[in-house]
Design a protein around this nucleic acid. Sequence first.
DNA 1: AAAGATTGATTTCTCAATCTTT
DNA 2: AAAGATTGAGAAATCAATCTTT
Lengths: 139, 139
Amino acid sequence: MAAWQTFLRAQSTVLHILEQELQAAVGLSLAWYDVLVQLRLARRPVRAGELSDLLLLSPSAGTRLVDRMVAKGLVTRTPSSDDRRVVLIEPTDRGVDTLRQAAPIHVAGITRHFTRFLDTAQAAELEALLGPIADSSNH
Amino acid sequence: MAAWQTFLRAQSTVLHILEQELQAAVGLSLAWYDVLVQLRLARRPVRAGELSDLLLLSPSAGTRLVDRMVAKGLVTRTPSSDDRRVVLIEPTDRGVDTLRQAAPIHVAGITRHFTRFLDTAQAAELEALLGPIADSSNH
DNA sequence: AAAGATTGATTTCTCAATCTTT
DNA sequence: AAAGATTGAGAAATCAATCTTT
């Protein structure tokens, strides 16, 4: 139970700091950053529902988030020509550029506030401990 | 970096499930539950600002949260007689009772979705890994 | 003036209901 | 009818500004 509380507090603490640092440096929220990262990792247009899943958000939260990013010119939304129920999301050039600016800052933040406290073996250990928990949603 | 992502996903996953289970069983959100727990642990009236800190919330978020819980009759808000800038929060009898109903369900949930994946040594290990990170906000 | 707390405005997430396409 | 996505309405968190007491 102590482990559970430490787990909660550690994540809340680090996320708050990272959010503020990224916001201050590039004017980007963590949520927006995650969208750009996921689109970059996919290396192809991503379906709206798929994106929501990747971000651990509800479908409607995904829609709103994309709304705001489209308005800021960071991503585009295009109906699929295969199946017109489907909407495909892609980063714009400006989106890719924004990610390029944000990534080193964010990675440095993670290093400073998270990785810094773990050597390689400990990071592996942590991942091994939490991996099964992270995957346990599937039922 | 993989450890970081697993860390994020594990917490998000488990929190979503626990929230839903507690909501379904007792109609209580995790935020409300945490308020009642903190007041219970304190065993005395808690200052508004202190409560916000304990909950890892901003002062204003703490005020709103207490607003809603006062409206539902779960806690009371009383100006301190020592220093009338200070507001003291206490659970009502009904609040204490609600906590009594919720606690076993929530603890069972933590066991089922978190502790279940860790033996005693692993829980200690996890706490040791994350403890320094949780405490690192102080500077 | 500073400390403690609250309020106003804004942002964001969620559920249920709806719209479009298959 | 079912799948995919969006919209309306409501809940909750945050910052900056404000109010009260010290």
